[in-house]
Write a protein that binds this DNA or RNA. Sequence first.
DNA 1: CGCCCACTTGAACGTGTTCAAACGTCGTGG
DNA 2: CCACGACGTTTGAACACGTTCAAGTGGGCG
Lengths: 265, 265
Amino acid sequence: MPKPPHNPNLHLVESENGNGDTVPGMHDRLIRKLGTIGSLSESDREAIRTLKGRVRRLQPYEDIVSEGERPSVVAFLHAGFACRYKILQGGSRQIMSFHIPGDIPDVQSLFIERMDHSLGTLTESTVVHIEHKAMLDLFAQAPNVWRLFWRGTLIEASVFREWMVGLGRREAYGRLARLFCEPVTQMHSVGLVEGKICELPLTQAEIGDAAGMSNVHVSRTLKELRDDGLLTFTGGSLAILDWEGLVRAGEFDAGYLHLKTASAQ
Amino acid sequence: MPKPPHNPNLHLVESENGNGDTVPGMHDRLIRKLGTIGSLSESDREAIRTLKGRVRRLQPYEDIVSEGERPSVVAFLHAGFACRYKILQGGSRQIMSFHIPGDIPDVQSLFIERMDHSLGTLTESTVVHIEHKAMLDLFAQAPNVWRLFWRGTLIEASVFREWMVGLGRREAYGRLARLFCEPVTQMHSVGLVEGKICELPLTQAEIGDAAGMSNVHVSRTLKELRDDGLLTFTGGSLAILDWEGLVRAGEFDAGYLHLKTASAQ
DNA sequence: CGCCCACTTGAACGTGTTCAAACGTCGTGG
DNA sequence: CCACGACGTTTGAACACGTTCAAGTGGGCG
């Protein structure tokens, strides 16, 4: 409860406009993301372009899906930032991943009925809900595509493992360094960032909940990283000042992301 | 390096006897495991029974596959215990999962070329290496089976997330309680344990490397759990004295394992 | 202007680490 | 049969990293 709660009561402006909707650029964004996972044939792309879904706009800190639910759709994150999290009995929160536009953070719900964690927005977001059936039809039609999605979930598992190592065996300084390396690399891979500055709309409390540290210690450790000339992070904007140094500090090796496209910087 | 190292130089008694081998009971064990993930039709079972592989016996603390390798086979763990791990630059180790007979801990290698972590035995083990091609043929032949395997990897990811929460947000006592609840539940689900006592061939150092704590603190925390009458753990043998208490201490809810069969106890 | 929220800073505290020594058991070799 | 070494475990004591509590700063927005 001391944490800034994801507020499930915020179900406000849910501007849905039909069931066969889509959003401009959605398919390109998804195809670009899948392209970082593996290669797509032209017919695969064709098939993907037939995907339709229900568009939904969400407020910051609104749940896309909540723990315990049994969704019949997956959520394509078209715009905005999101994260996976769990809340413990004592009220403390662990964030397990961050998500950027182009991600489908709950592909797993295709095969695992019950959500064992929640998925919430961090910013205003646009999500396209695609029926499970539509996804499974796509897989049946384009066999290469399910392999890509499977590979995507396996890469996600690899990222979880990497976070486990950070949480279990790295100390705060390296843990944070690494926590910044990862999304920068991912955003580069889908072309969401060009230079050394990127939008990363997180509060220090959220960083703490992802890194398993208190917000106070996040503040202090960020100061260290700043004083060492590695980065600045204010108002949800991250500026990388010394990529090499940051990589060294976090022992970051992008290999675990298994990206097909060239990695960051 | 202060850790009991997985010794890759121990490649000793590698009794391979051909390429089309199998091992008695292997298919039943695999089918039983898959049965905890989802339901299999009779034709699915037929198809699975055609799987063949190269049998390999391994010493304790021998790598099944090592980080950086690009395997062309998956490893079915027929007998013995194994774990996934990574070693950091400073020499510290993080164990990311434990594996019991019936598991195929590196299904991911079907779709991710390069191993981003190592997989090593904890005890003498028997492994059956199955060619990637044989697995992919099986998937093509029995479409329901790939769904099951995919679901299996998704459940594995769910377990990683649960460990992340433990590493990031739980303190030692609950973290260990939970660490014991999990394998007991899993072993019950595949019928490897009946009563309250089970073989869990881990040293305190290995438990520490899984729980992100020092072996010294593992020793102290085990003493607490023992003094509280929850369990005893000596010589690789775990005795559950108070399952309810252990579950409470670890806030353990088996839901994240998404087992189809009835859960432990 | 004033409030709210995120961030910062200081100080005390606590959980868990590190270092070090000692114990028990088991397997090996004299 | 006993001595010895290896290894896992236990225990103590000092220490460190990170937490918690508390107060204060600063910016954004009504």
